[in-house]
């Protein structure tokens, strides 16, 4: 086991990344609790749900929906909405700084196995995104909420949810890339 802060390709060691994120995760939780945003410890979903909630201005039938109302009035959802901007800026700065900033439409490995058709990738991504959105609402949290936070709290619900993320994810990945199954 090498314990250097960065690896050869300029990436942080997983230990470095893990410690930074754990400190951030704890600090965020304490902060949210002090500001009494009890229901939403550190997550991404609520921020995206905040965007979804604003669709009530397009479709008036959504205005009375409890999920929409909840996400529009929750202060934590508001904070997490701005977290999204932070993540975008942070990832941009990280990519620029490590000279990894390479805009692309579809991932290179996808193109290698599934061809350069942009619409094919977009269709799969749209369905995938839909599944992420629906799944995250049903499971009350995404990878950040259920694993980074939920596993760290040893929540029974998050343990099961996280295990299900991987079970389904592994099956779908094997279907998408069948030839890479054996080494």
């Amino acid at each position: 086991m090498k314990l250097k802060p960065t690896t050869q390709n300029g990436e942080w060691h997983w230990l470095t990344g893990g410690i930074v994120v754990s400190l951030l995760s704890i600090a965020t939780y304490v902060l949210f609790e002090k500001l009494s945003y009890k229901d939403y410890p550190f997550g991404i979903t609520a921020g995206i749900a905040y965007i979804a909630a604003n669709f009530k201005y397009l479709f008036s039938s959504l205005a009375q929906n409890p999920v929409i109302q909840n996400n529009l009035t929750s202060p934590a959802a508001f904070v997490e909405f701005f977290m999204l901007f932070g993540i975008i800026i942070g990832a941009y700065l990280g990519a620029k700084q490590s000279k990894n900033y390479k805009p692309e439409v579809i991932p290179a490995i996808w193109e290698k196995y599934h061809g350069p058709n942009v619409w094919k990738r977009f269709a799969v991504v749209l369905v995938g995104g839909f599944c992420l959105g629906l799944g995250t609402m049903l499971a009350v949290g995404c990878t950040t909420g259920n694993i980074l936070q939920g596993w760290a709290h040893l929540s029974l619900g998050s343990m099961v949810a996280g295990a299900c993320f991987f079970i389904a994810g592994i099956i779908v990945a094997k279907i998408l890339y069948p030839k890479t199954g054996g080494r």
Binding site: C164, G169, L176
Partner: peptide, 30 residues
């Protein structure tokens, strides 16, 4: 059920919600 649906999405997309947002910052259009 939600966990399994989420997993299907993660497999199809190749990102989870947090990394998806980060990918926007890295200018990955998908």
């Amino acid at each position: 059920v939600g966990g399994l649906i989420f997993g299907i999405g993660m497999g199809l997309l190749g990102y989870c919600p947090g990394t998806l947002i980060a990918r926007i910052g890295e200018a990955k259009k998908d």
